[in-house]
Every structure is written in structure tokens, then in C-alpha cells.
Design a protein around this nucleic acid. Structure first.
Lengths: 191, 191
DNA sequence: TCATGACATGTGCATATTGACATGTCCACT
DNA sequence: AGTGGACATGTCAATATGCACATGTCATGA
């Protein structure tokens, strides 16, 4: 479960309340790791019990801002360096592609056009965010740098998916050049 | 829950047992939609109760092969055409990148090198699969075509992630060319 | 004959995730 | 004074998912 470490990581940046964190997930992390507020509040309670975080201050409407403890910082670091990355992927869009043969050509091209448009729009959003970061709109702190890297992933992934949909639209059989134009050659090239 | 539709889709291709489907998920779909065998057997039971599938034959060791019913076929088709694609993404690797600033430069470059190697290897695997499909190693049926498209997605996505890791490794600030130029200001992250 | 490993299906529990519902506060506006 | 909307936190139930354990079959070779 990466949620707890994500929360610790966000809190390492600055104290925040469950509400803050929930919104942070919605706009920033939600696209790579969705989390509803019930999950967040629940996890925060557990993290506090385990002394990874503590209440930093209490605000207006029951607001409770948390901050990480040294133990918590140690824990995120441990996660980042010692815990194997979970490369599990869950992509409904790609799952569906395995069943494209069940759709009529019309339905399929309609679908692919929509998908391409969707991914291109999302990619464009990430690109704008990346540019804003590069312009220095959010300063140049290390945290901003990290988010910049994450945005780059969003841009690249969605661009790749958009191009994939477009490629699929134009009849894969015709195109004899799969993925792999740039970068060094690994080996075993065919084509 | 896409699992049930994935199962129906696989069964639309040919009758199969829970075991068959489980292996199919392991080698083919597992990378975009993991599913353990308990989940599969459970779902099959439910699908049978709801008359989406039925037992086609019983084999040696308690083996039960299922086949889709007309109702089941209708249901996958409905899913493919009428149900909105769930674009939810869950990528721990990218989630981690938001917290890169908590790692030392050494740890980070070590991490990124490993990641790049991992993604490149996986991408290479998909590329080989794609080539085999293009060579016609699996025939040229529509199902094979669909899998070919899915493999393309795997190749493109993992290639993109590998390039992303490499890009991040070489210091993003130096590289002023993210994914594409163009775009205006806006975005509202932060806070 | 006996052990081994691939085949095949399951149960049970723990945890993760989602969605609906519930509660109350503060602020701005009418 | 009253209303609506953003703020803020939570509970609860239903699913989904993952992991460990359990059971038994069939074919192969020692």
C-alpha cells in the first residue's frame, strides 16, 4: 500500500490536513494514484497511532494539520530506497484493446478517435504544467523539481497512449514500424 | 470492475477453464490487469449464475471449461461500446517520483538506472511479441490483431517510461525539451 | 511403488478501495 | 436572520483484491 507513504511524503513537504491532502491527491496525484477522502482520513489516523505523524495544529472547523515525525521521515526514505518498486499496471484502456475484435469497424474507429482525443488533451495539460514549472512559476525548490519529473511522466505516458490510439486507428497491418524509433538500439531489430 | 468483462471477452474467443484463464491473465493480461486465480474462479461462478457463461465440458481433474452464452456476448459488446472507459491509472513508479527530493542524488540515480533498465527490458519483450505477431506466428485472425494492438501499447508505454527514467537521470533542468513545445500559461497545482 | 511437479479448483481472511450517507462550521450574500 | 456554498471530518457497507492455505488429480520418471 503506497498510500501511507505518499501521505508521509506529502507531509514531509509541509504540514497539511486531511482535507489538504485529499485535494492534493485530486489534482496532483489522483492521476497516478487515486484516493478518496475516507481512505485518507483513515490512513492518517493509523499513521498518527503509529507515531509516523502528529498533530501540528488545530484550525477553524475542526481542522487538524499533521506533520511528519522523524520516524515518519525515516519510513518514507526507507520505502523509497529499500522497498522494491511495484510495477503493477492497471490500464482498462489497454485491456479493452484485447477485445477490439468484438467491435464493428465503425464502433472501433469511433472509440479510438475518442481515446486519442482524450489522451492528447490530458498530455497537453501535463505539458503546460511542465512548462509552468520550467518557467519557475512554482519556484525551483527540490519538491518542485520532483513534481516536474512526475509531470513529465504524465506528458510522456499520455502522449504515448494518444499516439497508440492513432496508430491503431490507421490500421496496424499497414504500418510496419511498431514502437521504437528513438533511443539506442537494444538488439534483435526486425522490421 | 473490468474483470468480468475481460473474462467474457476471453471466453468469446474460445471455451476455457478457470485455470486457462488464470494463465492467460498471467502472461497476457497480467501486465495491464492483474487478477489472481481466487478472483477469477469467484467471478466465473457469479458469471455462470447470471447466465453470462455456461459449462461447456468437464475434463480430467475436475476441469470445467466454460463458454459464453449469447447473453454474455451481448454484455461484453455493451461494455465495449456503451460503458465509458475508466481512465484511472495507478503507477507507483510515477507516484514515487513526486518524492524523489527525499532521496540523495546517489540513491536517485541508482534508482533511475534500475528503472530504465527494467522498462527497457519489458518494452523489448513486447516488441518481440509484436514482431512475432507481425510475422504471423499466431495466425492473422481478428483476435490476434487485437492482441497485437495491446502489445503495441505495452511496447510504447514501457518505452516511454524507460525514456522518462533516462531523461530524469540526465537532469531535467538541462533538457529544455519535454515532450513538445506549444501551450499557454495556466495550470493550478500547488497548495 | 513412490515421489515430484504440473494441472485444477477452491476457501478464508485481511486489507484496499469506492460510494453513499451524515454532521457540523465558517463566510458571503441577501 | 436566513441561505447557500466551500470547508472539514468522519462512518458505514459493499466490493475488490491479494495472500496463504487446503485439496485432490494426473503423468512422468526413479
Amino acid at each position: 500500500m503506497s498510500l501511507r507513504h505518499a501521505l508521509l511524503g506529502l507531509l514531509a513537504e509541509q504540514p497539511a490536513s486531511g482535507w489538504d491532502l485529499s485535494r492534493r491527491f485530486d489534482d496532483l496525484l489522483g492521476s497516478v494514484w487515486p484516493a478518496g477522502h475516507p481512505q485518507i482520513y483513515g490512513e492518517l489516523r493509523r499513521l498518527e497511532q503509529e507515531a509516523f505523524i502528529e498533530v501540528e495544529s488545530e484550525g477553524p472547523r475542526r481542522r487538524k494539520a499533521y506533520q511528519v515525525t522523524d520516524l515518519g521521515i525515516t519510513e518514507v526514505r526507507r520505502w523509497l530506497t529499500d522497498v522494491e518498486v511495484d510495477h503493477t499496471l492497471r490500464l482498462e484502456a489497454v485491456l479493452r484493446s484485447v477485445f477490439f475484435w468484438l467491435m464493428t469497424p465503425d464502433q472501433l474507429s469511433d472509440h479510438l478517435r475518442r481515446e486519442a482525443a482524450y489522451y492528447e488533451a490530458v498530455a497537453a495539460g501535463y505539458r503546460q504544467l511542465a512548462e509552468a514549472k520550467d518557467r519557475g512559476d512554482f519556484g525551483h525548490g527540490p519538491q518542485t523539481q520532483s513534481v516536474r519529473i512526475a509531470a513529465e511522466a504524465g506528458a510522456r505516458l499520455n502522449t504515448a497512449l494518444g499516439e497508440w490510439a492513432t496508430w491503431a486507428l490507421n490500421g496496424p497491418t499497414v504500418d510496419a514500424n511498431p514502437a521504437e524509433p528513438s533511443g539506442q538500439t537494444e538488439s534483435s531489430d526486425h522490421r
